[in-house]
């Protein structure tokens, strides 16, 4: 075999290898991105209440409207909307009650904050009580009584 033919063969197989590598990478990338999108759809669907069911998320419900809402979430994910943007779009149509968990902003944040505030106040009351008791113990006898 001539040197030129050998060089041509090596170049040809090299090119085929590069193309296979590129196609493989693209296919894996697209599968992975599809998996990421599907995970995001499931994640958002689990936080949206099925409007016609009792306490079920659209991820868990088999109602036709739940299926349609999952379809809308998928469309929104394809439009590169974030999880909170999708949630907000449903809140704009149904109100805050469409979310199974309260939002972490606005008035709904009180649901997360109030228990923390209540616990802190409880700790402060207990601390004040024990501090006071340590300072003025009820069993402390007036001076001179031991004599």
């Amino acid at each position: 075999m001539k040197v030129t033919s050998r060089v041509f063969l090596v170049a040809f197989f090299g090119l085929v290898a590069v193309i296979c590598l590129m196609v493989g990478t693209l296919a894996t990338g697209s599968t992975r991105s599809r998996q990421v999108q599907s995970d995001l759809v499931e994640q958002v669907a689990a936080t949206i209440r099925c409007p016609v069911c009792d306490g079920l998320s659209v991820a868990d419900s088999s109602a036709p409207i739940a299926k349609d809402i999952r379809g809308k979430i998928l469309q929104d994910v394809h439009r590169h909307m974030t999880e909170s943007q999708i949630e907000n779009s449903f809140v704009a149509q149904y109100g805050r009650s469409i979310l199974l968990r309260p939002q972490r902003s606005g008035l709904s944040a009180l649901v997360w904050l109030l228990p923390l505030v209540a616990i802190s106040i409880g700790i402060l009351i207990l601390a004040a009580f024990y501090y006071d008791r340590a300072k003025n113990p009820p069993w402390k006898l007036p001076r001179g009584d031991l004599k």
């Binding site: 409007p51 016609v52 036709p64 409207i65 349609d68 809402i69 379809g71 809308k72 149509q93 149904y94 109100g95 469409i98």
Partner: peptide, 13 residues
């Protein structure tokens, strides 16, 4: 079809 209008209006039933 697909309850598109109902979802836009936030219909619950």
């Amino acid at each position: 079809p697909g309850e598109k209008i109902a979802i836009e209006y936030g219909v619950t039933g």
